[in-house]
Design a protein around this nucleic acid. Sequence first.
DNA 1: TTCTAAGCGAACCGATGGGTACGGTTAGCC
DNA 2: GGCTAACCGTACCCATCGGTTCGCTTAGAA
Lengths: 227, 227
Amino acid sequence: MTTAVCARKVPRGERRRMELVDIAEQMFLERGFADTSMQMIAERAGASKETLYRHFSSKELLFVEIVTRNALLVSGPDAAVARDGSPESVLSELGIGVLRIVLAANASRLFRTVVSESARTPELGDLFYQRGPAVVAARLTDYLARAAKRGELRCEDPQTAARLFLGAVMSNYHVRRLVQSDWKPPSEKEVRRHVEAAVSMFLAQYESRRPAGRKRLACRRQSLPAW
Amino acid sequence: MTTAVCARKVPRGERRRMELVDIAEQMFLERGFADTSMQMIAERAGASKETLYRHFSSKELLFVEIVTRNALLVSGPDAAVARDGSPESVLSELGIGVLRIVLAANASRLFRTVVSESARTPELGDLFYQRGPAVVAARLTDYLARAAKRGELRCEDPQTAARLFLGAVMSNYHVRRLVQSDWKPPSEKEVRRHVEAAVSMFLAQYESRRPAGRKRLACRRQSLPAW
DNA sequence: TTCTAAGCGAACCGATGGGTACGGTTAGCC
DNA sequence: GGCTAACCGTACCCATCGGTTCGCTTAGAA
């Protein structure tokens, strides 16, 4: 079976460690940090607490490892930015990607748990922010600066612009997801509609209409029949 | 002393109860819910746990009372909206007010604590959202609708518009405050500058240029001379 | 002054959970 | 086959905490 194949390369200890961290991640995301005991993790993994403690010196360290591993998830949808396409396409693609993640059950659970624990463990919150949201903001800022240099946008302060856009995209969805655990997140359709509105507002301010006046028109026109 | 004066009207039990809830609030905001034990609250109040439990049937109920009392704080800065001034003045006043609260130490601590506990007590998060953020959003939505009716703004979907604006105003400040406990919040100057940028972006999209002006075109035109 | 509700302190209960210790068991390498 | 390190199960230690009980004291109204 696969175990045999894996065993070829990965030593026993390493393998067990990975299994454990997987199980722990699953449970932390499911039930939060405080409500998941080491005993429960060990049980579900078919392990003993001692094994758990041999691999992770404390519950906190275990959680830190999981956060580190997952924070990047938030910075996932940056393919659009990397491609350096037109502002409209880049922004809507990025916006939809970000919003999707913010609304995803797992991500919001992780975020909630990080918030809970960052009071007790400040480095944790910092780590999360630096590896997650900050990365997205930085990449968007870079893109906006490049687009401005190319003359596609007119913005003197790309950092502020990026913050405005990301804020508008997340709007109160983020908060609701965080606080109202039984809130029914918007449909994919609504998400697209919201992001479109955000993009439209952003471009109304920052797009340089120089290159060709019709660009806007096209964009507008296109959104019209859609809804 | 004041005690004598107070005693005149407020019966002993009621007085003690208020003292207790004040102390508890202070401690919950300082150290969070989980890290504050009933014993500690009683001690700092110079009370016994029994007295505490005579007034509040459980720790959770005590916290709920405190959240209820504080959530309205978030909806405080709506005087601007009530006055029905020009969009620009209303938006910037509201924006600054909201952002100030979001950045305030106490409010962000409360929010963090609510997030932590809302996993265990869903009604709590709901309560907070309904009495806090939702109120602000609703009031702004109403204002935008009125302004649109007056012809000052052109927006067909005031709810989305309100969300976009509030999101842009809070941007990532909210999240950072929540997660990076040692983050140094921006200066008053930066706050004003950010809100100004948000207002400008919002108006670029939603301000009605001229009565005759057709939708998008007019709006685009307007942003040109601005920068 | 007297009577009662409110309050105090301290001990107590039951449960939970992080972390450790130990004796027996398995996997994997030589 | 034999050796070692990782592993399992269980029991255990210790601390905390929510919540209760009880005997005694105090405040304040009649």
